[in-house]
């Protein structure tokens, strides 16, 4: 019993360490965002003078609001397309035999490992030639491309877990291949698709390199990129407060997602990687 109690307190210490590890950097930026500009330089972890002014500031900043809209719009469209295309491909990979299957798996693996910077220079030039530079489409295209390997891997792992016999049963019950897919497979794969959609959205939301390289104004610049353009010379003397507030704002939705779908995200992140 003594040993049991000791290991319980040991795990409690471990829990505290993990919670501190994960939370402290986040709490710090949240604390900064609530600090009154006059107290930025006090170096204190907890604000001495609380204010909501930083938040009021960024939400009256047209660039930031526009950046949020861009982030949400571009993220949702990219995620939707990636899920639709990815579901189709993942189903084929998990269930059908056809020539080029290994090639498709290979190509998506290559893209998953691809250094994004290597695409920046040619895309910069190509998108300027095609008029896609600084547009939503100009960001959506690379986002779909880099989200696809993720969706294909994760979803094909989910599809593999749906018993083969259900599809056979649907065929025997008189379903066309599409009916079998739509009425039997999709409802069962829906949890997997939600998970995958969240992962894909997090990827798009998190991107910074494409967002600063393929945009030149607030027409398509996403929120993370907008933040990096906050300077003291505009209506804020010191960007610290607004950057912190903006960082908190773009972080909160993702953290909520992640906490809410914790179990599924863990399953999704690991399924593609380990089961292959």
């Amino acid at each position: 019993m003594e040993a049991g109690r000791r290991s319980v307190s040991g795990w409690t210490v471990a829990n505290v360490v993990v919670v501190l590890y994960a939370m402290v950097p986040v709490l710090w930026i949240a604390s900064l965002s609530f600090k009154d500009p006059s107290t930025f330089t006090d170096g204190s972890f907890i604000p001495r003078k609380w204010t909501l002014g930083n938040y009021a500031g960024i939400f009256t900043n047209a660039d930031f609001v526009r950046g949020l809209v861009n982030s949400i719009g571009i993220g949702l469209i990219s995620t939707f397309v990636a899920i639709v295309f990815g579901t189709m491909a993942a189903y084929a990979v998990a269930r059908l035999t056809f020539p080029g299957k290994r090639l498709l798996i290979g190509v998506s693996l290559l893209i998953a490992m691809f250094p994004q910077i290597s695409l920046v220079s040619p895309l910069f030039q190509i998108e300027r030639a095609l008029g896609l530079f600084n547009t939503w489409a100009g960001l959506i295209l690379p986002y779909i491309t880099f989200a696809l390997p993720l969706t294909i891997y994760t979803l094909s792992a989910f599809f593999r877990e749906i018993p083969w016999e259900l599809e056979k049963a649907a065929k025997m019950d008189g379903a066309t291949p599409f009916q079998a897919f739509w009425q039997v497979i999709v409802p069962l794969a829906a949890p997997g698709m939600v998970t995958t959609a969240i992962l894909a959205f997090i990827f798009c939301w998190n991107d910074f390199l494409f967002a600063i390289s393929l945009t030149s104004s607030n027409a398509a610049r996403t929120a993370p990129a907008t933040i990096s353009f906050f300077t003291g010379s505009t209506q804020f003397e010191d960007p610290t407060g607004s950057i912190s507030a903006a960082a908190v704002v773009i972080t909160i939705p993702i953290v909520i997602f992640v906490l809410f779908f914790q179990r599924r995200i863990v399953a999704g992140l690991t399924s593609g990687a380990v089961k292959g």
């Binding site: 018993p163 016999e165 259900l166 056979k168 049963a169 649907a170 065929k171 025997m172 019950d173 008189g174 379903a175 066309t176 039997v184 409802p187 069962l188």
Partner: peptide, 19 residues
């Protein structure tokens, strides 16, 4: 195709649609 043969099948796992 199976759907055009008008046969019904019972599977070992029953293959009931769980949803």
């Amino acid at each position: 195709a199976p759907r055009d043969r008008d046969m019904a099948m019972v599977f070992q796992s029953y293959a009931l649609y769980p949803h």
